[in-house]
């Protein structure tokens, strides 16, 4: 009976023990997910090297050779995407806006994922009164309308980009928490959780060592969705004029273009680029979520 046959040591690709690598491999086979990853990588690179990429100071008014303000310039070699009605370089503003988008997106995503996961874990695992309290709190948060909440926040504090991050974190965690909670409810009934308990593991150890790693992919999924949400919200808030006026963001650019009648003048070089950037980053979030979904729920694979 000692001649138990063991599988070969080297395993074929794709079904290796490391679920993370296997998942990544699957994501890389999906063209949508690859496109999403490319967009994210580009966003990060542009934000990091913004200083090198900008051709002008995005807040500085530019002048022409004849000394007059360079207003409403078309696309040219000097101004890659033209200038605004007050003579600022649009291309440089677009590059500067990527930093804001990344900052808002990443901080909001991290707070949503962290808050939602923690609440979901505690709620699902301990149940009872803790669960009832946290889930009613989630209901309240879900009932608050998004944009008015941000506007009220801007009223209390001064207009600030962090209002958007706070609002996204405070209002978006319930979605994550509910899904994590439902997943915890199934994972905690698995025999290996009972095995951990019968071998003396404490509640906290069971929760964070045995349960949490098995729901972590969902955390990433909701985090990536939150990136898109946060950037979209920031743009919306800036567009209606409650953004931080001292900080250049894509939403601020759109608002600037809108109030100075760029649309009626047909200055597509002004309003199109920030709009496209917002769409790309938001869509990337959803594509990545879609790819991750196939990894998480193998039954969706056609």
């Amino acid at each position: 009976m000692a001649n138990v046959q063991m599988p070969a040591q080297s395993l074929p690709a794709g079904q290796g023990g490391n679920a993370f690598v296997a998942g990544l491999r699957r994501i890389l086979r999906d063209p949508f997910s690859v496109a999403a990853l490319v967009i994210y990588v580009l966003l990060v690179l542009v934000a990091i090297f913004a200083d090198q990429l900008m051709t002008h100071d995005p807040t500085q008014i530019q002048f022409r050779a004849n000394g007059r303000v360079a207003t409403n310039q078309p696309v040219s070699e000097a101004f890659l995407l033209g200038t605004t009605n007050l003579g600022r370089d649009i291309y440089s503003q677009l590059i500067a806006g990527s930093r804001n988008a990344l900052m808002v997106g990443v901080t909001a995503a991290i707070s949503v994922a962290a808050l939602g996961t923690l609440v979901g874990l505690l709620s699902g695992y301990f149940g009872g009164r803790i669960d009832a309290f946290l889930m009613r709190l989630a209901d309240v948060a879900l009932a608050i309308p998004f944009l008015p909440f941000v506007i009220v926040l801007s009223g209390f504090f001064r207009a600030n980009t962090w209002n958007v991050v706070i609002a996204v974190a405070l209002l978006l965690w319930p979605n994550t928490a509910r899904v994590i909670r439902s997943q915890v409810l199934t994972v905690k009934e698995r025999a290996y959780v009972e095995a951990a308990r019968v071998t003396g593991a404490s509640d906290l150890r069971i929760l964070f060592v045995h349960v949490a790693p098995n729901i972590l992919p969902l955390t990433f999924l909701y985090g990536s969705v939150a990136i898109g949400w946060a950037i979209l919200t920031e743009a919306a808030v800036s567009f209606v004029g409650f953004g931080d006026p001292s900080r250049i963001s894509w939403g601020f650019m759109l608002q600037d273009a809108f109030v100075s009648q760029a649309l009626s003048r047909g200055s597509w070089n002004w309003f199109l680029p920030p709009g496209i950037c917002i769409i790309m980053v938001v869509i990337a979030g959803f594509f990545l979520a879609r790819g991750a979904e196939e990894v998480l729920f193998p039954k969706l694979r056609s």
């Binding site: 679920a19 698995r190 025999a191 290996y192 095995a195 951990a196 019968v198 071998t199 045995h210 098995n214």
Partner: peptide
């Protein structure tokens, strides 16, 4: 816990899939 232990019905579910 050290003195009383359990052997599970379903070995496929009794081991954490993320633990070696």
């Amino acid at each position: 816990r050290k003195r009383a232990q359990l052997v599970f019905q379903n070995p496929f579910d009794a081991l954490n899939p993320r633990f070696t």
